[in-house]
Design a protein around this nucleic acid. Sequence first.
DNA 1: TCTGGATGCCGATCTTGACTTCCACTGGCG
DNA 2: CGCCAGTGGAAGTCAAGATCGGCATCCAGA
Lengths: 235, 235
Amino acid sequence: MTAEPAAPQPRSGKTVRLPRTARRFQLLGAAREVFVAQGYHAAAMDEIAERAGVSKPVLYQHFPGKLELYLALLDEQAHSLVSSVRRALASTTDNHARIARSIAAYFDFVNDPSGAYQLVLESDLRSEPAVRKRVENSFTECVNAIAGVIAADTGIAPGEAELLAVGLVGLAETGARWWLVTGGAVPKERAVASMVELAWRGLAGYPRRNADSAGQEPSPGTADTAVTRHGPVDI
Amino acid sequence: MTAEPAAPQPRSGKTVRLPRTARRFQLLGAAREVFVAQGYHAAAMDEIAERAGVSKPVLYQHFPGKLELYLALLDEQAHSLVSSVRRALASTTDNHARIARSIAAYFDFVNDPSGAYQLVLESDLRSEPAVRKRVENSFTECVNAIAGVIAADTGIAPGEAELLAVGLVGLAETGARWWLVTGGAVPKERAVASMVELAWRGLAGYPRRNADSAGQEPSPGTADTAVTRHGPVDI
DNA sequence: TCTGGATGCCGATCTTGACTTCCACTGGCG
DNA sequence: CGCCAGTGGAAGTCAAGATCGGCATCCAGA
């Protein structure tokens, strides 16, 4: 999914000639590194070109400008996140597992070694309408996907389901980012399990349209058993 | 809390002379408007000065530079948010009310007509370490405040409580911002109540150290009654 | 193998926009 | 009446996005 430049800088004298497609792919990789490390504004086209081992005009032969280059990367990551969440929801009909896998999807998205999640979740440049539109769209699509499942499987009104989905996405997003900045102080599975527990307890309290016993919570046990009651979360 | 310039532009010929404190206060107000409307990068010192009805050198006599001006506003808002959350937690010992008021605090923070919440929650310029530090600090302080309450009132380990607090903050933050962009399609109280419901159900499942009945959830009713069972949320 | 065209690439430069500062002016105050 | 803090117009400085003309490299066809 993420373009990896063959070598950071083939600085040995001259630049090798590359076919157009390959060069574009490499430029995207270099741009991703710089944008992630510096943010949009601090990133310089000079540095992107240098990182790719080419000169600036080459960059402008592949992309009309800095913004378009950024948007290409943003689209790439936004689609990646949305499709991950959709896959998580479609991978099972067990709603607890759906939540667990969706939250895990956020953690995995954030955990990508390239750090490209920042383009979607921590973008500067929300002042730019095109960027704002894409960020909000990806968020909304995730919300709608989750809200759809909630509304379909419970008697909750669509508007209410949407609100809950927003809360869940916020929980997953923030939890994932927090877990990342702590640098793995707690294992990922543990953090995911906590978020799932928090989320599921909330969802489980609502009545289910198909009245099976899963929606009915027994009185809570001890803290330890409560946290691990559903067992470890598998991807 | 937010400085309101007496008039956007006292464009009547000459600028009135103001005592230093008042001038600074007015400059902060003008700067807040411009930074909120345009973001840090798109904002121009020219426009801030013009908005305040003074010339640029005056601006630089009160603030060393654009960054310091921005940081002053950022501090202002970050402290506002943190103290609101702290106040909400300290205003009662009823944990359900604590959650409700804390979440409401996020909604109120976001709902400020000045839109200054953007400085904390949607700042471009996270690439700047000073900014990142302040944003993360305010987040962490909110998390710690909530985690402290959780850990104190339950048997949950501090690390686990911190994770839950992160989830709650993310839920509140994202919910509030979502509610704002929808432009009041649903009433604020309704949105807050949904977030509270989602959050509380999760928290309520955990055992309470002081075993009073508030932590024990009865079996859920219908969707409508479930949402409003706790009654409307008062500030 | 030779050749003409096309493609890829670069050094150097232009241009813009925004932060910052210099110097003269003005109006109140001792 | 003279001082001076506050003020403004305008210029300085600089970083960074965008571009122009020319050189090098590769490939198809005779």
